[in-house]
């Protein structure tokens, strides 16, 4: 790993207008950085702000959101100063995002093959048509789609959710991004496919030197797959720890989350229930 961070975020705040005219602060002073070849996991419950933080990085926040940060950098580029056009260009090429539900990310009226080929054209405008098609098929093979030639000619509604997710991933990989943000990428997938998808993402990181942010509610998955894990609660990072040190988590919230997971070796006793403390939401509440 190089020591210059690929992503550098400091004191990020995101707020939404409330019905009563005030502001709801969904992300409150989040700072983190990501190195190339690093897999960073962000875990937290719904509403903890885990998705918003990386959406801000890609510049795809909802329109009515208000964002501020002391620093928001990608590979030395100041995203706070970048024009919308520059950011769009970054999103199309150097940064990519995989969303949970492929239904919303694939264009329903274009064939799958055409969408992947378009993704290639953005990255390699000089390629010939036949060459682009060949590469698209290779990419589908790489995400373990059987008979990719056939799948190229299907429309998104003709493929299953799991396959749609893999097509999405193929599209994102086609651009060879330097930063991949994966928001619950495997929740909709079968275990067998999940393993494959994770290994493809792993390859992007280890072989091509990309950085990966994996957002998930699944503690087990994140601790197994990532290098480092951020635990978010009520819009703040309450704990940051190495993934293999998960069982040594110190913050009561992280420990509570781990404890209340049911286990295969369960004795059938009631699960410990997370007792939330008001202090966790404050910066002083961190042990």
């Amino acid at each position: 790993m190089s020591d210059k961070p690929l992503v550098d975020v400091e004191n990020l705040h995101i707020a939404f207008p409330r019905e009563d005219g005030g502001w709801h602060e969904a992300v409150r002073g989040v700072s983190f950085s990501l190195l190339a070849r690093e897999k960073l996991g962000i875990v937290g419950e719904s509403g903890s702000g885990k998705s918003l933080s990386s959406r801000a990085l890609l510049g795809v926040l909802p329109e009515h959101a208000r964002m501020s940060a002391d620093r928001l950098r990608f590979d030395g580029i100041d995203l706070l100063q970048a024009s919308p056009r520059e950011r769009r260009k970054l999103r199309g090429g150097r940064m990519s995002m995989i969303l949970q539900d492929p239904k919303f990310s694939l264009n329903p009226v274009l064939k799958v093959g055409r969408q992947i080929m378009e993704a290639f054209r953005i990255g390699y405008p000089a390629l010939s048509g036949a060459e682009t098609r060949r590469r698209a098929i290779d990419m589908l093979e790489a995400v373990h789609i059987r008979s990719p030639e056939r799948v190229m000619d299907l429309y998104p509604h003709q493929i299953s959710g799991g396959m749609g997710q893999r097509v999405m991933i193929a599209m994102m990989m086609a651009r060879e991004p330097e930063l991949l943000v994966a928001d619950e990428p495997t929740s909709a997938l079968d275990v067998t496919v999940r393993t494959q998808v994770l290994s493809i993402m792993d390859e992007l990181v280890t072989r091509r030197g990309a950085g990966l942010i994996l957002i998930s509610h699944d503690l087990k998955l994140v601790s197994r797959f990532c290098n480092r894990v951020l635990v978010m609660y009520a819009g703040r990072i309450v704990e940051s720890l190495r993934a293999d040190e998960m069982h040594n988590a110190r913050h009561p919230y992280t420990r509570g989350l781990l404890a209340c997971l049911p286990s295969i070796q369960s004795t059938g006793d009631p699960l410990p229930v997370l007792q939330r403390e008001a202090g966790w939401a404050n910066p002083e509440g961190q042990p």
């Binding site: 509610h217 049911p262 699960l271 997370l274």
Partner: peptide
């Protein structure tokens, strides 16, 4: 549901 809520609901069901 979130995992912490899942635990509460599972406990309720068992009870």
């Amino acid at each position: 549901l979130d995992v912490s809520i899942q635990a509460e609901v599972l406990n309720l069901l068992s009870r």
